[in-house]
Design a binder for these strands. Structure first.
Length: 442
RNA sequence: GCGGCUGUAGCUCAGUGGUAGAGCACUCGGUUGUGGUCCGAGCUGUCGCGGGUUCAAACCCCGUCAGCCGCCCCA
């Protein structure tokens, strides 16, 4: 009896996801698509470090963000010279720092996209991770940012999401000035509890929101009625502005909706109950829901306008508007609902059979030729039984198997693994034939 | 951070006091240069961890850790 090796049983860490190859292939296709749409609108890529100084991350006073801090295992506990570092919890704060720091070298309006992982020390569950990918676009300008960019955000996102196979979705748009203007008119000063709870309207219903606003925020029934009436109003033109701020919000929202009139009705909706819990948004706000997965109520893509992005870092006024796809959330939820189905386990189009050790050079040569022609080609690694080599192609779902000449006077042959057909092939001209039948060979 | 539920093979789970099982997956085989199906054989477990009760614990009790779900918050 041999001694049993001690092994550490591998396990995944909750809230940190990783995928099998067949899923990762799709994830990369999605990311490629997102990148290409972003770039088609002229957004430029920025990547910032995973860590920022804690002072930067906390500059906005977002202490409830559950930031992961970074320390060295060998750190000297008495040495506090090192700046304390933390993993970034979003990409907006790093963008603010970046924009302020490189202010003189950037061209404004600065349009950037950023796809990186972010970290939040929260309790994970479906659609909420501790490490997740966000795909952000933001436009930053100096002093004044044209409203037309507020309409560009949903336009870009519509194109991104429409190109991913995620079913129907709806981008809801509102403008915080409308609700905040009403609160001002009603004489309500402490707005955060109100906006946070109005935000839950669709999720928990009007009665529950009424109870919370009455009991916790101490509002009067009259005030609550006015707020709910506004939030539930589905007809923008019937809203009466009670002050300048409200009117401004209505005008802005109408402009944005007008700019988006080319998009399908179900995809874009003005919804005055959307206010976003975050209090740094000052105008337009966005949320996106998956209509085909109604049981998942959280937003998969949100954002908004902020009047002053980098005020904590530079003495200039930098207004911006941005939106962020919760990529990991979206991907996980769709996968959970069976809408992300992995097929290929590797990118190869063709598996090269290795008939014998003597033929290895010819096989390699053939593979090189095919790669030059643009195919992705994997060579089988050992001259094993054909049964094994074919079974390998089958398991990896490689669609074509290439048989090089087994003897000098023979021809190349290619087998279509889907149909089972095998035909002679010309190395310089072969291409995957159009399959007219979609059935698998029995 | 708060609450509920759950931890048994790589996966999905059965087993509720008498020293561990199924299906799937995986490996090999069913002769010469051809995969999937079928048939046969095989491999895989500190029964999450620690303690207690008992002649005896995967099973009962306590603790602990982890996971899932809900809340909070948010992508």
């Amino acid at each position: 009896m041999s001694e049993k090796k001690k092994i550490y049983k591998p396990k995944s860490i909750s809230g940190f996801s990783e995928w099998l190859p067949e899923i990762r292939i799709i994830e990369q296709q999605w990311l490629d698509h997102i990148r290409s749409v972003f770039e088609s609108y002229g957004y430029t890529s920025v990547e910032t470090p995973a860590v920022e100084e804690l002072d930067v991350l906390l500059a906005k006073g977002e202490t409830d963000k559950e930031i992961y801090t970074l320390t060295r295992l060998q750190a000297d506990p008495d040495d506090d010279k090192d700046a304390r570092l933390g993993l970034h919890f979003d990409q907006t704060v790093p963008l603010a720092r970046y924009t302020a720091q490189h202010f003189n070298e950037l061209v404004f309006p600065f349009k950037r996209y950023q796809t990186q992982k972010v970290w939040r020390g929260e309790r994970p569950q479906l659609g909420r991770s501790r490490e997740f990918m966000q795909c952000d676009i933001d436009v930053i300008n100096v002093d004044h940012l044209p409203l037309h960019f507020d309409a560009e955000m949903p336009a870009v996102i519509y194109e991104v999401l429409d190109g991913l196979n995620i079913g129907k979705f709806q981008i809801s748009i509102s403008n915080r000035k409308i609700l905040l203007g009403l609160l001002e008119a009603l004489g309500i000063e402490d707005t955060i509890p109100v906006t946070r709870n109005v935000d839950k309207l669709e999720k928990i219903g009007a009665e529950a929101v009424t109870t919370i606003l009455k009991d916790e925020a101490g509002l009067l029934q009259e005030q609550i009625n006015a707020i709910l009436q506004l939030a539930q109003n589905t007809d923008l033109s019937s809203v009466n502005a009670q002050n300048e701020q409200m009117q401004e919000g209505l005008d802005e929202l109408n402009f944005v909706m007008d700019q988006l009139s080319h998009l399908p009705d179900h995809a874009i909706k003005a919804d005055l109950s959307i206010v976003r819990g975050l209090d740094y948004y000052t105008g337009t706000v966005y949320e996106t829901k998956l209509l085909d997965i109604p049981e998942f109520t959280s937003s998969i893509c949100s954002g908004g306008r902020y009047d002053d992005l980098a005020g904590s870092f530079i003495n200039r006024k930098l207004p911006g508007v941005g939106i962020s796809i919760g990529f990991t959330r979206l991907f996980e939820v769709l996968q959970h609902n069976g809408l992300v189905q992995g097929e290929r386990k590797c990118p190869a189009d063709i598996l090269m059979i290795l008939p014998s050790e003597e033929r290895r050079a010819i096989v390699a040569d053939t593979a090189r030729t095919l790669r030059k022609r643009g195919f992705k080609v994997e060579q089988y690694h050992a001259p094993q039984k054909l049964q094994k080599q074919l079974s390998y192609a089958e398991k990896k779902k490689i669609p074509y198997v290439w048989f090089p000449p087994f003897e000098d006077d023979q021809q190349h042959e290619v087998k279509n693994m889907n149909s089972g057909e095998q035909q002679k092939a010309e190395l310089s001209t072969w291409s995957p034939q159009e399959d007219t039948s979609h059935e698998n060979a029995a």
